[in-house]
């Protein structure tokens, strides 16, 4: 065993990068579920975002344009889900699963010409002075813009849900859509907006995978990240702060276990491999002992006549 070969600074820096895709997808899904919609299509929207972002970034040479298109692509796909569930009143679970299958298929169709191409590098945001601070500099201040955007989004969602009128309306719609409707709020409109936001976030998360973390396009490259994001929202009791904690835990332990393996730690590999899931679930389950519960109208179909 040689723990000294693990560089804690590099480890923490790659923790933050590794957790960003999950964080983005999960914070989007959190808003969707707080509005009372269960969208199981996160995986499909992520991978669609991954290829949209990748294709645009390759063609324009600008990763920024890629991320914008990834958000639009994810949102466009999610609007399909919105049309099915909010207008055609289809079952949320079935529509969400269909969206995942559709997204996976669509992305491999769109991605056919992009296998083996390298995307333009996403510049790191080296903040002068701050990134020169020893230890803290490389860990906190030398990432790309998307990492900070993801953190800002978490803060914005938290603040919005807790302190603003818009957040209150969103939560009302999610807790009891009949009551919200009786008060005159546009339940369908609020939900469609939430779904589109969730789709855009998932798309950004996917693009972060294909443009920064891997970076290349491979069919099926999200390989289940969307499902982990979905589970994370539940284990985080629909709270923004805990989603951040969960994503960091999951990303952190995933990276740590790989490093421990490479360093030859004498813990059986099977335990190391399951550790990210185990640790994340344990911590979040213990934290959710405060009787937080799911939004009251989660997954229920709303129609004004009922």
């Amino acid at each position: 065993m040689d723990l000294s070969s693990i560089n804690p600074v590099l480890l923490l820096a790659s923790l933050i990068a590794a957790s960003t895709p999950i964080l983005l997808a999960a914070i989007g899904e959190l808003v969707v579920e707080r509005a009372g919609v269960l969208n199981l299509g996160v995986e499909g929207m992520m991978i669609t975002g991954a290829i949209c972002g990748f294709a645009i970034a390759v063609n324009t040479g600008s990763p920024f344009a890629g991320f914008v298109m990834a958000a639009l692509g994810g949102a466009a796909l999610s609007l399909l889900f919105a049309a099915l569930t909010q207008i055609a009143l289809a079952n949320h679970v079935a529509s969400g699963l269909a969206l995942t299958l559709f997204g996976l298929g669509l992305s491999s169709l769109l991605g056919q010409g992009y296998v083996g191409i390298k995307p333009p590098p996403t510049p790191k945001l080296d903040i002068p002075l701050l990134s020169d601070i020893p230890i803290l500099g490389p860990v906190l201040f030398s990432h790309d813009l998307m990492v900070y955007l993801a953190l800002a989004l978490v803060a914005a969602v938290w603040g919005m849900l807790k302190y603003t009128r818009a957040g209150l309306i969103l939560r009302a719609v999610g807790e009891n859509h009949d009551a919200a409707h009786a008060l005159g709020y546009k339940v369908v409109r609020v939900r469609v907006l939430a779904i589109a936001f969730g789709g855009a976030c998932a798309g950004l998360g996917g693009a972060y995978l294909s443009l920064v973390r891997v970076p290349q396009w491979t069919e099926g490259m999200t390989a289940g990240v969307g499902w982990i994001a979905l589970a994370l929202v539940v284990f985080a009791s629909w709270k923004a702060g805990r989603v951040l904690l969960g994503a960091w835990l999951f990303g952190g332990v995933s990276v740590l276990q790989l490093n421990l393996q490479a360093a030859g730690v004498a813990v059986p590999v099977e335990y190391l491999s399951m550790s990210p899931y185990l640790v994340t679930i344990l911590v979040l389950v213990i934290m959710s002992a405060d009787k937080s519960r799911a939004p009251g109208s989660l997954g229920r179909i709303f129609h004004a006549s009922q």
């Binding site: 070969s5 693990i6 790659s14 995978l209 973390r213 491979t218 390989a223 490093n259």
Partner: peptide, 15 residues
């Protein structure tokens, strides 16, 4: 699992 494979490669390179 491209993301995991990339992370594994990065961990090895960092070590």
């Amino acid at each position: 699992d491209p993301a995991k494979e990339a992370d594994a490669a990065t961990a090895l390179i960092e070590q």
